[in-house]
Simulated scan of single mutants.
Amino acid sequence: MTTNPRSRALNAGLTGLATTAYYAVPDVTPSRAARGWLKAACLVAGVALTASEPESREGLRKLRSTWREGVAVTDAAAVTDAAAVTDAAAVTGDAAVTGDAAVTRAVDGSAAVTDEDASASRKTAVAVVGVVALAASTALTIAGEKWLYRRGEARAAAGVRFPHTRTGLALGALSIALSLVPEPSDRA
């Protein structure tokens, strides 16, 4: 999906401004509580900017429709499985057998590991990897934020004026540059 270049530049500029403001907050107020509230306001502004972009809205629409299709497929599979269970129970003479196990027993007469068990294992592995990745990302983000704050405070102690703002300007410029990188679909 291609967007208006002017809109893209405006969003990139606003994102850079929000980033600069976020990192410049310690130069504005010495109060830790006030810094927390001001940084939260900057984050809300950044999220609002991201949510207002057409690409974000389109992505949310696709995610919502994919979820709805997944629910519809799951419902259809449940109806198919119920029919298979009835057929398998009739073949095996076991009314207590359900799901894929019934189909497996009906086909080869065994109680082998089913696709359902393998699917559950894959889902568990993906969930564990996701949680570990989220925890690592959070830990690295916190460590980076603390390092930037300590660096700014050391520069302030050395007599540099607006040390956090200077860092914010550099990171704001970086966020603008990254926001202006075209999407792979826009390059073609």
Rank of each mutant, 00 (worst) to 15 (best):
R68E: 08
K123H: 12
T74E: 15
R68T: 05
L38E: 09
K39M: 15
V107P: 00
E58K: 14
D115Y: 09
T124F: 11
A77E: 15
A96G: 11
D100S: 14
R64Y: 05
G93Y: 12
A72R: 09
T104R: 08
V47T: 12
A78D: 04
L43W: 14
A48S: 10
S110G: 01
V91P: 00
L43P: 01
E69W: 14
W67M: 08
G109M: 01
V131G: 00
A120C: 01
E53Y: 08
K62Y: 08
A106K: 05
V132L: 13
A48I: 05
L63G: 03
S65E: 10
A88R: 04
L38K: 13
S121K: 15
A88T: 02
V44D: 02
T74S: 15
L38W: 15
D75S: 15
T92P: 02
T141V: 09
S52C: 04
A136H: 01
G36K: 04
V73E: 08
T98C: 02
A90Y: 02
V131R: 11
A48Y: 11
G36T: 08
T104D: 04
R57I: 14
A83V: 05
A51M: 10
G59P: 05
A102L: 07
D75A: 15
E55F: 07
V129W: 06
S137D: 07
A76E: 13
G99Q: 04
L43T: 14
E69Q: 13
A45M: 06
T124K: 13
A112F: 01
T141D: 11
R68N: 05
S110L: 02
T98Q: 08
R122W: 12
A48P: 02
E55M: 09
V79R: 13
S52Q: 11
V107E: 05
S65L: 13
T138K: 05
V44H: 04
V107N: 02
K62A: 13
V97K: 03
E55C: 09
A112P: 00
A127T: 13
T138Q: 07
V126H: 11
W37K: 06
T141A: 14
S137W: 10
T104S: 02
D115K: 03
A111F: 06
L63P: 00
V44R: 04
A136S: 02
D87L: 14
L49S: 03
R105S: 01
L43M: 13
R105E: 03
W37A: 15
V131I: 11
A127C: 02
V91T: 12
A139Q: 09
V103G: 00
D75I: 11
D115C: 01
A77W: 14
A102V: 07
T124V: 06
T66Y: 14
V71S: 12
V128G: 00
V79L: 15
S65G: 00
R105Y: 00
G99Y: 03
D108K: 03
V71R: 15
G109V: 01
V113W: 00
S65Q: 09
A96D: 15
A106T: 02
T92H: 07
E55V: 13
S119D: 10
A95L: 06
V131E: 03
V126G: 01
A90K: 10
S121Q: 14
R105K: 07
T66W: 14
L134N: 01
A41C: 04
T66S: 10
T80S: 07
